[in-house]
Design a protein around this nucleic acid. Structure first.
Lengths: 252, 252
DNA sequence: GCGGCGCCTTGACACAGATCAAAATTAGAC
DNA sequence: GTCTAATTTTGATCTGTGTCAAGGCGCCGC
């Protein structure tokens, strides 16, 4: 539908890394203006995707990394019993598809949770210019390393934490990431369903729902459908007795 | 203690990537001989570490990546309640410390489980030559990507799998990795304690022990302390009904 | 505005695995 | 070799969550 929409096409062409408010979180972080321009030339910014559309599916051949520009993305692995495992949620400035570099085939699928625009970075061409722009190479390794550290924090969460701790950690991670993007860290809307949250946190939907209700009864926050208002961030934080050096938040 | 041991020193100096049977799994994979030599010149091979010694601790400043040469390494995050979360076990040819690139500080600690020798790769210098040797850069990204995919498989395991599935997956992962290193995939010794296995798999020690007993009663394998003999690999594999495209095995 | 559908919430119950307790086995120190 | 501490195994009980079932609510299409 949007393919015929001139307004959107024009808008998406106009945007460049240099103008993008996310550049301090994203791939171009720390790049010279000239190098940013080079990055821009080989990057595509397709029309926005609508809720439910895929960036890629499991098994697709890998050729590009995706950076979320606006909206949000869920990455998940389909299990052969028909169910799926949610691997992560990606907010603006975050990358999707890094886990496919080695196998050259996507192991996850990525589906957008709401209207979402992305930048598409063809991996081979990125690699070519990374050889000439060491700070770009460095930034790529940094982003992958951050992703690794984030997943390790998730391993901790799934290995040790109670349902309450898991949900508290999840909400604080979102809060922190929204804050880093200039949004409120105390009020926001969830773009994912309770089902997805439960799947991500290794909990049944019912448990997620019960924990939301409990946190609300305790006065820590209020929930109205997708809308979350955190009244007492400090109490939410005090619920995670896991390592304080590690944060599940992905953002810097 | 070994620092005064001439024999060990001489032995460790003699080894180079070109002579190393692990080079097809490790950093030098796919490198030209000349580039391998360059890698060798900036790499250190310190004396072997003895059981319980640390490669680094959480909070240490990051400057090197470690490649396991022989033995095995456990990486773990200390929780501030005194307990720890085991993040992974590393066999020869595998890298440790990749998650610290972005924060420039180790988030995990790494401790050797038995007498272990490693190669120490100073990250800054590796990065310098990676700019000139694209295949090295590529290989680094590949190894990090593989690590990411592996941790995602672990997320699946911890999010969905039963105790039996977790242990079966763990044993098959070890078997596969031993095989790739030229060892038996049906008989091997565990270098880690039941406690560490449980911690890694998100299970209590007692549960791990019970599952070992169960698998033995079922005739799938026999356990004698650290020694494992897998009698029926096929039945072990049939226990994991998670996604077959994804393996928790780290090796290629 | 009404009806149907999907998502979310709540309740009742069951069970896998945690926890507590204690015995058995092994490893290390001397 | 003996003693002591650590690890592992086994048993008994308890509990947090999963599962099943039903009902409520909001959204969308007509």
């Amino acid at each position: 539908m949007a393919s015929g929409n001139k307004l959107l096409d024009v808008a998406s062409v106009r945007v460049a890394c240099g103008d993008c408010s996310l550049s301090k979180l994203c791939v171009p972080m720390g790049l010279e203006a000239a190098d940013m321009d080079r990055l821009d030339t080989l990057m595509k910014r397709p029309r926005p995707l609508r809720r439910g559309e895929h960036l890629f599916r499991a098994g697709d051949r890998f050729h590009s990394i995706y950076a979320v520009r606006s909206g949000s993305v869920k990455s998940y692995t389909p299990c052969h019993d028909g169910s799926e495992q949610v691997i992560g949620f990606h907010l603006p400035g975050e990358l999707v598809g890094l886990d496919a570099i080695e196998s050259e085939e996507h192991v996850c699928a990525a589906r957008v949770l709401e209207t979402t625009s992305v930048c598409v970075l063809p991996f081979d061409r990125i690699q070519e210019i990374a050889c000439e722009v060491p700070s770009l190479q460095r930034q790529f390794l940094r982003l992958m390393s951050k992703e690794l550290a984030h997943e390790e924090a998730m391993l901790m969460l799934l290995g040790k934490a109670s349902a309450e701790e898991r949900l508290a950690t999840f909400l604080l991670s979102l809060a922190q990431r929204f804050k880093a993007r200039g949004f409120s860290e105390t009020e926001f809307n969830l773009s994912m369903s309770r089902h997805d949250i439960g799947n991500y946190l290794g909990l049944a939907v019912e448990t997620v729902s019960r924990m939301f209700s409990k946190l609300q009864e305790d006065g820590v926050l209020s929930v109205h459908r997708k809308n979350i208002r955190i009244h007492e961030p400090a109490r939410l934080r005090s619920m995670l007795r896991l390592d304080e050096n590690r944060s599940v938040a992905r953002c810097g």
